[in-house]
Design a protein around this nucleic acid. Structure first.
Length: 694
DNA sequence: ATACGATTTTTTTTT
DNA sequence: AAAATCGTAT
């Protein structure tokens, strides 16, 4: 018996050792998907396949890293690694080499989402649409429409009809804005996230020769999280595997949760139609969770219709049922979770075996405060990306104008920092500098003041001082540049702009440390843009806390692919989870339910659902999530209020009435409480103003 | 006309 | 926490 047979179950083994050709692996949650892929790669390499002939596409950089670690632990770290990474990062790597083919310089910069929104804003203005008197979608919405259209390979009008009927009348303007946006990106030598995929696709599609070269190189294509690919990515895959036709996709249709990014569940559901010779494998043995948790998970899935039929089998013994806990408000909910965590830690459970999951990033705020107070270290995943934080972007903007002087967005950011210089002046300056030409001459820099007002001159001079310090001839590496920046007047700007200036300076130091690994500016910048790493909000003041000593707070999306001994899913109330907006969309509810399924299947041993009956934003909100209602009551233990100030009749959730019997200090900010008015079972619409906010 | 500060509103999920 | 909005100062 070889090592593969010994270390894999028969389901996994047949995938790992399968012959060439197209294959679909339907891998249920917790069925050892990552393991299977890693062994597959190891198997191929041991069979003599060159690592560079394998293309391994994952959904996040984190997953890619994990995969590489697994492979090296199987084969030793002397082995060369396969091509691996996210679609975007692989596309970026290839585009750096072939940018000229599609009319770009190979030092192109990658716009992050914030920059993209800003640029769209400018395009809306340039388009001259009347946004004052008419209601027009915000730049963010316009960008999401454009982006969706490109990822779904659909015309804008289709996207409007399907997802934004409200704005369908503006199709003309939006399409025109899309064109402006496109042209402006080209002029600035920048690409947004979607461009990476679109141009990668074009590169392959428009040049049969190059397509042949690359698809010959990629002898084996392996794709993780296939249920979350969109039409554009599916097209890329088809081309990448067109020569050898060895494409193996792994996914779980029940975990498709990225349709807002144009992920199309049809890709996995119709895989057998697209690749008629495809073999289909199923991984249905779940090693992760107790039967009690899987019962709940299966119960969730039963409510959905559009899916492959599957049954997860647990290998574990029966244990305790998941618990549902109801609270008066967010504060009580947070207290419960925090103290429960404290108990678990006291029992000897490791912090990194505990996670708190939620639908939206801001759901964690109340809990964070309690954890902070109790001194429980945590790591937060979700919300603003580290590299999207204002001060980090400030620093990067300087590096960007040096890397690519055509980068209009970076110039704007850099100049906006100075006093006396606003959007209008910036346009004037950029025109004067002729940034479109791609090089900044000293004369043009020196002649700028002649077109400025007295106040703007002061700001401009400050900018020039910083700029010349960073661009000095002896400075070539990113780390040196950041160092120069911190020694310049830039520090003064930081201090005046941000109240938490010290913390932010520390962030920049971290950035500098990180940058030390990179000598090449363009590569450094694009790596940052494609990193999904998050801010680690500090959890405890004193000392260093190791990653193993922190519990995890995470959005459900971020939690995909991970697992913990104990999982709390908080804010399981109506309007929060499922998200109110998503439930209006076609198929939105099914996707939210899959998201809930993802949350449930993260837990290994113990699972808690909690929800407050009231929230800070609108106090008169009383219902539990429909997802909890749908659950078979026999599968969970339900607990009512633990607080003293409120009482909830949990007998029948459909008719639950809530009354404040003894308003204590916790609720005395409430101005008006409708006496005896039951509002547990009414929608919160039209009731928002009954009670004031905190 | 432009810049800027105070105030209010608003958060789905992410490469 | 960041963006959008609005009024005021230059």
């Amino acid at each position: 018996m070889n090592k593969f047979e010994k270390e894999l179950n028969p389901e996994q083994y047949s995938v790992v050792t399968s012959s060439a050709g197209s294959a679909l692996v339907l891998a249920g949650a917790g069925s050892g998907k990552t393991r299977t892929i890693a062994y597959r790669v190891a198997y191929l390499i041991e069979k003599g396949v060159s690592p560079s002939a394998i293309l391994l596409l994952t959904f996040t950089n984190k997953a890619a890293k994990e995969m590489v670690e697994r492979i090296t632990s199987l084969l030793g770290d002397s082995i060369r690694l396969p091509w691996s990474g996210t679609f975007h990062s692989v596309a970026c790597k290839i585009l750096r080499r072939y940018a000229r083919n599609i009319g770009y310089d190979n030092n192109f910069t990658i716009l992050d989402s914030g920059d993209s929104v800003d640029l769209v804003k400018l395009c809306i203005k340039a388009q001259g649409v009347d946004t004052k008197n008419k209601r027009f979608p915000s730049a963010k919405v316009v960008l999401s429409i454009i982006s969706f259209a490109r990822n779904a390979c659909a015309p804008i009008v289709d996207v409007l009809e399907k997802k934004h009927v409200r704005w369908v009348d503006f199709e003309g303007d939006i399409s025109a804005i899309a064109i402006r946006y496109h042209e402006r990106k080209r002029a600035a030598g920048v690409m947004d996230f979607d461009d990476l995929l679109v141009y990668f696709y074009r590169l392959l599609h428009d040049s049969p020769e190059l397509c042949a070269v690359l698809s010959k190189q990629f002898h084996y294509v392996i794709v993780d999280e296939y249920q979350d690919t969109n039409t554009l990515q599916a097209g890329i895959l088809r081309l990448c595997s067109s020569f050898h036709n060895n494409i193996l996709v792994v996914g779980d249709d029940a975990q498709s949760i990225y349709s807002f990014r144009a992920a199309d569940i049809a890709n996995i559901l119709d895989f057998e139609k697209t690749y008629p010779e495809a073999k289909v494998f199923r991984l249905e043995t779940n090693y992760r969770s107790t039967p009690n948790i899987l019962d709940v998970a299966n119960c969730v899935l039963e409510q959905n219709t559009n899916q492959y039929k599957k049954t997860l089998r647990s290998v574990q013994d029966r244990a305790t049922n998941p618990e549902v806990h109801v609270f008066a408000d967010g504060k009580e909910e947070s207290d419960f979770v925090a103290y429960q965590i404290k108990d678990l830690l006291a029992e000897g459970i490791k912090p990194n075996d505990i996670a708190v999951l939620f639908r939206a990033a801001f759901h964690s705020q109340a809990l964070e405060m309690v954890l902070m107070r109790l001194g429980i270290p945590y790591e937060y995943r979700g919300g603003v990306r580290f590299f999207d934080r204002a001060h980090i972007k400030d620093v990067l903007a300087f590096l960007r104008i040096i890397n690519n002087p055509k980068d209009e967005m970076a110039w704007t950011r850099v100049l906006l920092m100075q006093v006396g210089i606003g959007p209008v002046t910036i346009q004037k300056i950029l025109q004067h500098l002729q940034i479109g030409d791609g090089a900044i001459t000293e004369e043009s820099l020196l002649s700028v003041p002649s077109i400025l007002s007295a106040k703007a001159k002061i700001g401009w001079n400050d900018f020039v001082m910083i700029y010349t310090a960073v661009i000095a001839a002896d400075v070539t590496e990113p780390q040196q540049m950041i160092g120069r920046l911190l020694d310049s007047k830039f520090s003064e700007y930081l201090e005046s702009e941000y109240i938490d200036y010290r913390d932010r300076l520390q962030d920049i130091d971290h950035l500098a440390v990180f940058s030390a690994e990179h000598k090449d500016l363009a590569a450094f910048l694009s790596e940052l843009a494609l990193q999904e790493q998050f801010v680690q909000k500090q959890s405890l003041g004193q000392g260093r806390v190791l990653p193993e000593e922190k519990i995890i707070l995470s959005t459900v999306h971020q939690a995909k692919g991970l697992e913990w001994h104990t999982v709390f899913v908080i804010h399981m109330s109506e309007g929060q989870f499922p998200n109110e907006r998503a439930s209006f969309e076609a198929k939105g509810m099914e996707e939210e339910r899959r998201l809930f399924y993802v949350a449930v299947t993260r837990a290994k041993k113990q699972l808690f659902f909690t929800y407050p009956v009231t929230t800070h934003r609108h106090m008169a909100l009383g219902k539990q999530s429909v997802f909890l209602e749908e659950l078979d009551r026999a599968l969970v233990e339900t607990y009512g209020f633990s607080g003293s100030s409120c009482f909830l009749d949990t007998y029948d959730s459909d008719d639950s009435s809530l009354c404040f019997t003894d308003p204590s200090d916790e609720v005395d900010d409430i101005e008006y409480i409708p006496e005896g008015e039951p509002f547990g079972n009414t929608s919160n619409k039209g009731r928002r103003n009954l009670l004031s906010n905190f």
